[in-house]
Amino acid sequence: MLLHIGAFQLDVNSQGNTPWHGLAPRTRVLFALLFVFATALTPNERWGTWLIYAVGLMGLIILSRAALSVLLKRVAVESSFISVVLLGTLFRGGGTVLWQWGWLQITSVGLAVLGSVTTKALLCLLMLNLLVLTTSIPALLHALAELKMPSLLVAILASMYRYIGVLIEEFATMRRAAASRNLLSTARGKRLVTGNMIGSLFIRTYERGERVHHAMLSRGYTGLPPTIECPQGRLQDRWAIVTWVILLLLGQVVYFL
């Protein structure tokens, strides 16, 4: 699922000069959270709601001028989940049977679930990818802290983000060393070497953690992550949030009309 990690720079479009980029990162994170929760938690078969949400999302994507090719490519890689719902659709009873072949049958209920779940998942993926594409990771972490995520947790997240690349490099080095000694030629050898590599990397990781800790202490670290001051929301951010919430509520109301 992490195939696109190859392009580790996630925020391809973080330097933009559009209304979307003009919003504070905190507002953008709030946009995405509201949208994802509203979309994903709407019960199945409310097509009108998702139509409105899709229009709103399209507006955001156009407004942000995000690289459409990158956005769609990432969503395509992440969309392999459809196979699971398809499985559930093929073997489901209930409703009228539309097509049957031995054990397999497609019913109206199955199709409705397939359509609903796929729509919801795709909309959420598009929104989150838009956020990550246009917002740098430090800004995202900062925004999470401003949104009252515990500062200890944010500090751990930031520290993890800093070392992912380092550890992956280290793994690659170990693997290269094993491959150059021809130890990865059999399946058994691969398992043995991978297991030992993981054990060995844990020891290195732990020692690195202690080293980092000492370095932090030497700079006067007291165990308390730095507090993040929270700037007052500007007028445009507030207006944007209000508009967005009205749109999301409108989508819910449409169902009852």
Binding site: S159, R162, Y163, E170, T205, Y206, E210
Partner: peptide, 15 residues
């Protein structure tokens, strides 16, 4: 030790 140790260990599991 919480922040540095948990951070690198999370990166380790991720890798």
């Amino acid at each position: 030790q919480t922040v540095p140790l948990m951070g690198v260990c999370a990166a380790f599991i991720f890798a």
